[in-house]
Amino acid sequence: MRMILHIWRQSGPEDKGGFQRHELDGVEEDMSFLEMLDTLNERIIAAGDDPVTFDSDCREGICGACSCVINGRPHGPGHKSTTCQVRMRAFKDGDEIWIEPFRSGAFPIVKDLMVDRTAFDRIIEAGGYISAHSGPKPEPNASLVPHPVAEEAMDAAECIGCGACVASCPNGAAMLFTGAKVSHLGLLPQGQPERWKRARTMVAQMDAEGFGACTNYAECQDACPKGISIRFIGRMNRDFMKASLCEPDTRQGQLKAH
């Protein structure tokens, strides 16, 4: 197949950036999207130019490093998949493909398609953990977690931190990312002592990083490679309201699934 690629090139955060056109022959259907970019880069290097910079690592859809917006969709065509899982069979011979970085005020562009997502790390730092020193711990079966609760927590915990939710949201909101972590930890019995503080501090950090606010478009849920549901945003909202207005710190959270 032959592809016409329009790739966003930007030398650094301060540069204005713009699209660069490339034509690539010999694209095969079984290629992954990133392998297609690798192939392009090999040719660019051979021609003595600067290859396209893009993040990728595990290349099996779990590390969350890859971060392209392909034809206006984060992680491109395909449902519940990351850019590295997109295969070129999703395109036709002669297709024009527009490739951009994830865009958000909170994700400054490092170079070309590579962005800085450390804002997510700082949201986690604000409270996305359960404090536990490493050392002897109680027997895990001493506190039982009903199967549906464990499954619900796991649904939320599947987040890979790729940032597609932010990239897809017309408001650049990070509610799905934050909501998933608040819900994952807030659902489990061990997460109860810090539940209310966590909801407050993580939401505050999310705002401080400059992410937008949710208007319930539900684009994030659709773009999420792990299909994380926006019901976790609702859950975060509820926890946050309780935490902010009812001061429940002195009471432990109730263990309850949806």
């Binding site: 953990y129 359960i130 536990a132 490493s134 050392g135 002897p136 711990k137 109680p138 027997e139 895990p140 079966n141 039982l144 977690v145 009903p146 199967h147 609760v149 464990a150 927590a153 796991m154 915990a157 994952h184 930890l185 489990l188 061990q190 997460g191």
Partner: peptide, 18 residues
Amino acid sequence: DQCTAQGVPFAREYGGQL
């Protein structure tokens, strides 16, 4: 024990055990 305490959502049986 350590990971459970940290909130790792290990698969549970219907009775709530790991």
